[in-house]
């Protein structure tokens, strides 16, 4: 178990980001998480196809794509809710200090989940239990995971709620989730996820149910809190503009295949894969005059289809695209899987 370091961390709360600058991570070079050849099969379908990426300690990574791309499936695999015996999962997930956890039994996961890896779910109102008070839901992991006593857990819970910007924290402990607004509920979820100082925080569309001003508050809060703890964070997002603001690296997924990955400043600034470009073209900024939406369509997950899954929606598709799957190769500062990339 990791020691509590909130006390010392709290002293250094003046982040440059609080002054309005971009939150630059103090990223180390050692990888915290390495995912290699992660595949998931269900019957004849290949839901994830050889997904690979790595995450440095203290860095943020964005999993991007439309619904059905496999973003949330990857997040579930990373927190051990999809494991080998139950589903057709193969490949390796190497968590620093734990080795390959893709095979780890539930007993081992009970020691990892919440302690080293924690998750913020998309819909806070559904993830919080409506029958229990906020205080009980935040104190239960503190007592069970960290072994704190009742009064120590209460003190810590108040500290956590204050650190996520909930005013009047002591009286909020006795509130039920329905008494809080959506933004407040999401703050409580973040406090619960951070309660045991995880190394890796998974945020699955943490702001898609919130207003834009609250979204900015929540994203900043997640970045500040993870940075203060030198934790890493994986965001699952579909908004590329938001990803460019909060992720150091991005992984663009289509139909369970990684199509383009690399530093967000390179990939999102000048996408080379037609799919990344198309997604970028769907983002509305205030001066957007014309939209060029992708044609409708969904990827085929059939494991037998040999080619690029994006080929039938792609305007640049060649004959060979449907026949052979392009390999993920390093190209101009990123990794790209495309036979006919944009110049």
């Amino acid at each position: 178990m990791k020691p509590l370091d909130l006390g010392t961390a709290r002293a250094s709360t003046t982040l440059p980001a609080a002054l309005g600058g971009r939150i630059e991570p103090a990223a180390g070079t050692e990888p915290l998480l390495k995912v290699e050849g992660l595949s998931l099969t269900r019957g004849e379908s290949l839901i994830l196809d050889e997904v690979a990426f790595s995450l440095r300690r203290g860095a943020t990574l964005g999993l991007l794509g439309e619904s059905g791309a496999g973003k949330s499936t990857i997040a579930l695999a990373l927190i051990g809710l999809l494991r080998k015996p139950e589903v057709g999962l193969s490949g390796t997930i190497t968590l620093d200090g734990e080795g390959d956890v893709v095979d780890a039994p539930e007993k081992a996961w009970l020691k990892l989940r919440g302690r080293r890896v924690a998750m913020i779910f998309q819909d806070a109102s559904a993830a919080l239990n409506p029958c229990f008070t906020i205080g009980r839901q935040i104190m239960t992991p503190l007592r069970r995971v960290l072994g704190l006593g009742r009064s120590a857990a209460r003190v810590r819970a108040i500290e956590l709620l204050e650190s996520v910007g909930l005013n009047d924290a002591p009286s909020r402990l006795s509130a039920y989730p329905h008494q809080l607004s959506g933004g407040m509920q999401q703050r409580v979820m973040i406090a619960i996820a951070l309660s045991s100082n995880p190394d890796l925080l998974l945020a699955d569309e943490p702001t898609s149910a919130l207003d834009v001003t609250i979204q900015a508050q929540i994203i900043r809060l997640i970045l500040e809190e993870t940075r203060r703890r030198s934790a890493s964070c994986i965001f699952v997002l579909h908004d590329l503009a938001l990803a460019s603001q909060c992720c150091d690296d991005v992984v663009v997924l289509y139909g369970g295949q990684v199509v383009e990955t690399g530093p967000s400043r390179i990939v999102l600034d000048a996408p080379m894969h037609p799919y990344t470009q198309a997604l970028k073209g769907c983002v509305l900024e205030f001066d957007t005059e014309e939209l060029e939406p992708l044609p409708s369509g969904a990827p085929s997950f059939a494991s037998k289809s040999p080619g690029c899954r994006f080929a039938d929606r792609c305007a640049r598709a060649l004959d060979k695209c449907a026949a052979t799957k392009p390999p993920l190769v390093a190209t101009r500062g990123r990794k790209l899987a495309c036979w006919n990339p944009l110049p």
Partner: peptide, 21 residues
């Protein structure tokens, strides 16, 4: 102005959000 600042834009820094709700 605050709504505009809070809307995601490519590579813009995440601005100081509006305080409170």
């Amino acid at each position: 102005r605050a709504l505009l600042n809070a809307s995601p834009r490519f590579f813009a820094p995440i601005s100081d959000p509006l305080p409170g709700e």
